[in-house]
């Protein structure tokens, strides 16, 4: 089964048009309080949830937009979590 991704500009498109942009890790840590550990965590570390995660995508063979979606990593299906506040924001 192919992955379908809902681009906010172009609508549902074949997943191979997009480039995965990583788990959503919130804003980049500010330079003031930056430590080796917090930088490593931001750059390299992942939650690797087997379930629904918030993540970035880039419509590389399309409109060029960057956006986030919620996807279930066990099924590749996009999850509608707009109304669901139980999904924790990734730190």
């Amino acid at each position: 089964m192919a992955l379908l991704i809902n681009c906010p500009v172009c609508g549902k498109r074949n997943g191979y048009e997009f480039r995965y942009g990583g788990e959503d890790k919130g804003p980049r840590p500010d330079d003031e309080s930056l430590s080796q550990a917090s930088w490593c965590d931001y750059v390299h570390n992942n939650n690797c949830v087997a379930g629904i995660q918030k993540e970035w995508w880039f419509h590389k063979d399309g409109c060029g937009a960057w956006f986030t979606i919620y996807r279930d990593t066990r099924t590749n299906l996009e999850a509608d979590t707009s109304a669901d506040t139980s999904i924790p924001e990734v730190k």
């Binding site: 570390n45 939650n47 690797c48 990593t73």
Partner: peptide, 17 residues
């Protein structure tokens, strides 16, 4: 293993599955 590490111990790993 990465899901176990982050989910059960809060130790996030530099891994993509």
């Amino acid at each position: 293993s990465a899901a176990i590490s982050s989910g059960m111990l809060g130790i996030r790993l530099p891994i993509s599955v």
